[in-house]
């Protein structure tokens, strides 16, 4: 059996382009229907990354931008889990990149002007490659909630942005990870671009006491699922035969 086409993306659990409560989407959402395209080799392939592309320290946001001997300020957390496909198979050796605000809800970005202070020891980005079991982990601080201009009084729940590749351009995904118990999740117009409540749950990292390091770092677990693909069971006859 050879790997075949990818399962169709479930557009009823993915957010649509136009979501008026998230105001910026209104002028940035295509209005014509997308053209449905069965997987060609251009979508079934994608960039391959290796350990030469990243450094071991890249996945430790507590120290990857800190002065020697210092550390980022905030609640120390481990974010970990596995990258799987829809067939529940691990996706090994794939690049996972994250970025986030600091513990006060401020991003290290020249366009962010929120009054919470920059943490001199926190950059706010990390990257790693999943291991043979599809496992990834980062050490960081729990990001703070912050206000943003949508409605007059909108606050983003604490979140970490996650980018993941998989093995094919068809699997390319960017999403955001939230934290169990945060009352801002239910009120967030960006979270609520996702029409399916069960799908939203897939973005909420859960407290993982077993993975917590006692007296040191608290752990949250989030598995990421990329599109799965069929196996080619029967070869179609070539046209004309």
């Amino acid at each position: 059996m050879k790997p075949g086409p990818f399962y169709q993306r479930d557009r009823q659990s993915q957010p649509p382009a136009l979501t008026p409560n998230y105001k910026t989407s209104v002028s940035r959402s295509p209005q014509y229907s997308m053209i449905s395209l069965e997987t060609t080799v251009s979508e079934a392939t994608g960039p391959v990354f290796g350990h030469n592309d990243v450094d071991p320290l890249d996945q430790d946001l507590l120290t990857n931008y800190a002065k020697p001997g210092e550390s980022a300020i905030g609640e120390r957390i481990i974010l970990h889990g596995r990258v799987l496909d829809e067939n529940a198979k691990p996706v090994p050796n794939t690049l996972v990149e994250i970025w986030q605000a600091n513990a006060g809800g401020r991003y290290r970005h020249k366009k962010d002007t929120y009054l919470a202070p920059i943490d001199p020891n926190f950059g706010g980005c990390g990257r790693t490659i999943t291991d043979e079991d599809g496992y990834y982990y980062f050490r960081t601080v729990k990001p703070g909630a912050y206000p943003w201009r949508n409605w007059v009084n909108s606050w983003r729940p604490a979140h970490i942005h996650i980018s993941v590749f998989g093995t094919a351009f068809a699997q390319r995904l960017i999403t955001q990870c939230y934290f169990e118990g945060d009352p801002l999740i239910a009120k967030c117009p960006i979270v609520n671009t996702i029409p399916d409540p069960d799908a939203i749950e897939q973005l909420i990292a859960i407290l993982d006491l077993n993975a917590t390091i006692p007296l040191d770092t608290i752990a949250y677990k989030l598995d990421l699922v990329l599109r799965g693909r069929r196996s080619t069971l029967f070869e179609n006859r070539l046209e004309g035969n």
């Binding site: 529940a88 970025w99 990257r127 960017i174 999403t175």
Partner: peptide, 23 residues
């Protein structure tokens, strides 16, 4: 089967993660 993780916007600060020099 599992279900694909839903997407969320990359947001205005995508550079921090994917192009930190630009941030």
């Amino acid at each position: 089967y599992l279900k694909e993780t839903p997407s969320q916007t990359a947001g205005p600060y995508v550079h921090i993660g994917l192009a930190p020099g630009a941030a």
